[in-house]
C-alpha cells in the first residue's frame, strides 16, 4: 500500500514536471513552429493529467478537442509557412523580468488564498453532494452529464451559442482555404477511419448517459472524421452540399435545446425543467442534435468557412 502510494507520488511528480516544462518551452521558444508542436504535445500530456485526476470526460475532450482539433487549427495557420519563423520579444529585458515578477506575485497571491482554505475543506464534496442526491431525478446516471444537460443546462445552451458565434464570425471573414495538398495516405486512411470515427461518436454519445462521454466528445470525433475527409481531398468534408442544410445543421443543437426549454415553459413546467419521467429522452434528443451541430461547427472552423459553390 505504502509502495503503491509512493509510486503514485513519483508518477505525479514526473507528470507535473513534464507538463510544466512543455508549457514553458511552448511559451518561451523563439521558433513559432516548435512552439506549436510543443503546445500540441502539452495538450496530450494534459489529457494524461486529467485521467490521473479521475476526470475521464475531460481527458477525452482534451485529447479530441484541445490537443486534436486545437492542434489541427494551429497547423492550418502554419501550413503555408515554409520558412522558419522566429518570435523575438520586442520589450527590454527589464520589462520581461518585471512582468515575470508581477505574474509570480499574482500566482503567489492565488496560491496563498487557495491554500488558506483548502486544508479545511479538503474532504468536503461541495456541490458534489447535491448532485449525488439529485442524480436519480436527472434522467441520466453519469454525474457530469447530469450537470451539463440538466442541473446546469443553461450554461450548456449558451455554450452552444458561443460555438455558433465563433462559426458565424469565421464565416463572415469570407475566407475558405484555397487548396489543400491532397495526400494519398490520407484518402486511404479515410476509407476505414471515417466510418470508425462515426461509430465511435455514436458510442461516446450513447455512453454519456451512464459513463464518461457525451455530446461534446462525440461532436469532436465527428469533426475529426470531417477534417480527415477534407485532408483526403473531399472539398466539402462530408458536409451536405446544399447550403441551407448546412445552416440548419449548425443551429439544430441550439435550436432544439432552446425550443425544448421554451416548450416546457409553455407546458407549465418552467424553462428547461424536464419532467422526471421523460428527462432521459429529452436529454438524448438534445444531445444527438448537439453532436451533429458541434461536429459540423468544428469541421467548418477547421475549413475556415462554409464552402462556396465551386466553379467548374
Amino acid at each position: 500500500m505504502n509502495l503503491l502510494d509512493g509510486l503514485w507520488g513519483v508518477l505525479d511528480l514526473l507528470l507535473v514536471a513534464v507538463l510544466l516544462l512543455l508549457a514553458m518551452a511552448a511559451v518561451l521558444s523563439s521558433d513559432r513552429r516548435r512552439s506549436m508542436m510543443l503546445f500540441i504535445v502539452f495538450g496530450l500530456v494534459l489529457a494524461l493529467v486529467w485521467a490521473r485526476l479521475h476526470a475521464p470526460d475531460i481527458a477525452l475532450a482534451e485529447a479530441a478537442i484541445g490537443a486534436g482539433l486545437g492542434g489541427a487549427l494551429l497547423m492550418a495557420t502554419l501550413r503555408r509557412d515554409t520558412h522558419q519563423q522566429t518570435d523575438q520579444f520586442p520589450q527590454h529585458p527589464v520589462v520581461l523580468w518585471g512582468v515575470g515578477v508581477l505574474v509570480m506575485v499574482l500566482g503567489t497571491a492565488i496560491a496563498w488564498g487557495l491554500f488558506s482554505v483548502l486544508p479545511t475543506v479538503e474532504q468536503t464534496w461541495r456541490k458534489g453532494a447535491a448532485v449525488d442526491a439529485q442524480l436519480a431525478f436527472s434522467g441520466v446516471s453519469h454525474p457530469v452529464t447530469a450537470v451539463l444537460l440538466n442541473f446546469r443546462a443553461w450554461d450548456t445552451l449558451l455554450e452552444l451559442a458561443v460555438l455558433l458565434a465563433a462559426i458565424f464570425g469565421i464565416r463572415a471573414l469570407g475566407y475558405v482555404r484555397s487548396a489543400y495538398v491532397t495526400e494519398v495516405a490520407f484518402s486511404q486512411l479515410a476509407v476505414w477511419l471515417v466510418p470508425l470515427l462515426i461509430l465511435m461518436a455514436g458510442y461516446v454519445l450513447w455512453a454519456g448517459a451512464h459513463s464518461p462521454g457525451g455530446a461534446f466528445q462525440a461532436g469532436a470525433l465527428l469533426a475529426g472524421a470531417g477534417i480527415l475527409l477534407r485532408l483526403a481531398g473531399y472539398s466539402h468534408a462530408g458536409l451536405p452540399t446544399t447550403r441551407w442544410l448546412v445552416r440548419l445543421g449548425l443551429v439544430a443543437g441550439t435550436g432544439v435545446f432552446l425550443l425544448v426549454g421554451l416548450g416546457l415553459l409553455g407546458w407549465g413546467q418552467g424553462f428547461l425543467h424536464y419532467p422526471i419521467a421523460y428527462a432521459k429522452w429529452w436529454i438524448l434528443l438534445i444531445e444527438m442534435l448537439a453532436t451533429v451541430s458541434i461536429g459540423m461547427t468544428l469541421t467548418l472552423a477547421f475549413m475556415g468557412g462554409i464552402p462556396q459553390k465551386e466553379a467548374a
Binding site: 485526476l53 479521475h54 476526470a55 470526460d57 475531460i58 475532450a61 482534451e62 478537442i65 484541445g66 482539433l69 486545437g70 487549427l73 464534496w125 461541495r126 456541490k127 458534489g128 448532485v131 454525474p143 457530469v144 447530469a146 450537470v147 451539463l148 446546469r152 450554461d155 450548456t156 455554450e159 458561443v162 460555438l163 458565434a165 465563433a166 462559426i167 464570425g169 469565421i170 461534446f216 458541434i294 468544428l298 472552423a301 477547421f302
Partner: peptide, 23 residues
C-alpha cells in the same frame, strides 16, 4: 469520487476556449 461540478465547468470552458481560438 471527485466533485462532478468543476468537471462540467471545465468541459464548458474547453469548448469555449477552442471556439475563441478557432475564430
Amino acid at each position: 469520487p471527485p466533485d462532478p461540478v468543476p468537471h462540467a465547468l471545465v468541459l464548458t470552458g474547453i469548448v469555449v476556449a477552442v471556439s475563441a481560438t478557432a475564430l
